[in-house]
Design a protein around this nucleic acid. Sequence first.
RNA 1: GCCGCUUUAGCUCAGUUGGUAGAGCAACGGACUGAAAAUCCGUGUGUCCCCAGUUCAAGUCUGGGAGGCGGCA
Length: 315
Amino acid sequence: MKKLVCIVGSTGSGKTAVGIDVALALGAEILSIDSRQLYRDFIIGTAQPTAAEQAQVPHHLTNFHDAREPMTAGTFAKLARDKIKELLQSGKPTVLVGGSGLYYRAIFDGLFQGPPIDPEYREKLRDRAEQSGVPALHLELQQVDPVIAEKIQPNDYIRIERALEVFHTSGKRLSDWWQNGTDRFEFEPIYVCLRRERSDVVRRIAQRTAIMLREGWIDEVRQLLEAGYGDAIEREKFHGYREIAAYLRNELSLAETEERINIVTRQYAKRQMTWFRHTEGMHWVDVTPDDSTNKIAQRVLQIVQPILSAKSLTS
RNA sequence: GCCGCUUUAGCUCAGUUGGUAGAGCAACGGACUGAAAAUCCGUGUGUCCCCAGUUCAAGUCUGGGAGGCGGCA
């Protein structure tokens, strides 16, 4: 089975720079696996690759989708699979770089093969949740699908919504869909996670926030708000964009805004590492503040190249 | 210098008639099957400013001291 290099890690771990070096060494192009960089015009605050970086290696699946039409893991996985195959047909291997754990799972393991989302039903459900509370919907889920209800917390609205939605639109329980398995991809991931000390991550996040603010993030948000993306920013909870929008409404000082951004970013980094820590088959690359990008990339290649060449011997 | 208020978790603060403390945020750990930068679950991490006194028992009452804030000088 063909294998694909996947460089993962938390926000601010240095994935982007390392990914470029690795892609150059492998003669590959980069597929961004990032649930926020994919949105058009959300550039500075989502740390999209810069023009200089894109000049070194072409990046795909960034800056292409209108945020007023939210992306889903399933749709993204389809796009990613198509792009990987398309690149390969033109003789280009792909390196996947990004920190969105579920998106990797959707690409490689596949999601269960059930119905897509139903926006109208979701709207109705949301109204009901506001009226009678989320646990009431959980009770309802217990009636239709006790197996799934058991696995979902009574307050976990998003999962309850999905489970009820699946039952509503397909007439089949989510737990039954799960029984049928998933549509696995024909490629297999080689996951490599960049891991830094917590204090290093905290420092780098603060540094990164300061740089983004200096480089025009606030103007970017102002323009997005003027272009009518305010609702999308709130709904999708874009880190920093919400805080800056609050700042522009004079609800936060600049210092408070920066601190809030650092906090939500740190919390996210923590959740990302919890996910990757429990990802099967993960290869770890421990990184210290002194390591150069090139050195880190070399270590990634040391892990990845033997696996890639073992594959070519057998295929 | 005098008067008043104040000092409890990393931060902001609750704490009944005395029975060795708790909430929000932060932090830490976890889950994650089409919103994933989402969503949810779990954990208290403490010389209750210090010293002495009263009391079976003091965060709580009394006296003294120290820090902070405000007012009058």
